[in-house]
């Protein structure tokens, strides 16, 4: 891992990877949108609202995936002082918050016609809302200190504490009574969802993942350049 800790090497590596992830994002999302909107059947109970699922569920997966990645980076940053790990968490946070926001709002837009309500304060919806606030809290905390080092330290601790929320979100539909349906893809005994709906779901999820990698690499590049500017200004001020 420390081979990739060198920012200069990262800039070269990310420049080589970026065209591929950007291309994969475009292709996967075009194919994903086609199968989601045209190539898949409407649900026999929910009609065309089932198409909201192809945004809602991948966004929900991403909200957890991004958070877990940030928490791992936070641990690496705290334990090994890995210079890119802190920057990764900082770069990924707005993307994770964006996915969580998409998940919450599309869930509302799906709940309104199907459940008859925009929102209920049950375990699943509330725990995802807490995840959204964890993202926002992290972003606010990191920028709240004059010393960026102290900011990322505090943010990393918050990320590690907040990780308890992840299994709560995942198992909330099994542990508590809820309007939300239980897992139908990532579950023991394999998916219960039909293949014609599983395919658009997975393609969209891959597209979202490629998008996440692309945007995080771009944000990391910007963060590294920003750090360079900071050190240059600092030496200038001292010199």
């Amino acid at each position: 891992m420390h081979r990739f800790a060198n920012p200069a090497r990262f800039q070269r590596l990310s420049a080589a990877i970026l065209p591929w992830t950007a291309g994969a994002t475009v292709i996967l999302l075009i194919v994903g949108l086609y199968v989601a909107l045209i190539g898949s059947p409407r649900d026999y109970q929910q009609g065309d609202t089932v198409r909201i699922m192809y945004i809602h569920v991948p966004a929900a997966w991403m909200s957890l995936f991004v958070y877990v990645n940030m928490a791992i980076a936070a641990a690496c940053g705290l334990v090994w002082k890995h210079p890119l790990a802190d920057l990764f968490a900082k770069a990924a946070a707005p993307v994770g918050a964006g996915f969580t926001f998409i998940c919450l709002v599309t869930g509302s837009l799906w709940g309104a016609p199907m459940w008859g309500t925009w929102w209920v304060w049950d375990a699943r919806l509330t725990s995802v809302l807490i995840l959204f606030f964890l993202y926002l809290g992290y972003m606010a905390l990191v920028n709240a200190f004059d010393d960026p080092q102290r900011g990322t330290r505090a943010g990393n601790v918050l990320l590690l504490v907040g990780i308890v929320n992840v299994p709560i979100i995942k198992f909330s539909v099994d542990w508590w009574n809820t309007l939300h349906q239980p897992a139908s893809v990532i579950r023991m005994g394999g998916p219960t969802i039909d293949g014609s709906m599983l395919v658009p779901l997975l393609v969209m999820a891959l597209g979202f993942t490629a998008y996440f990698i692309t945007v995080v690499l771009l944000r990391l590049r910007a963060e590294i350049v920003q750090r360079k500017i900071q050190t240059m200004r600092l030496t200038e001020a001292q010199g």
Binding site: R51, I52, P94, G98, I102, V105
Partner: peptide
């Protein structure tokens, strides 16, 4: 969208808005 146009299309529009905006 089978009468659910407002819900389906606003979901897709919102996702596009957030993702393009972030990019």
């Amino acid at each position: 969208m089978g009468g659910y146009a407002a819900y389906v299309w606003s979901s897709y529009a919102l996702a596009a808005l957030v993702m393009v905006g972030l990019l």
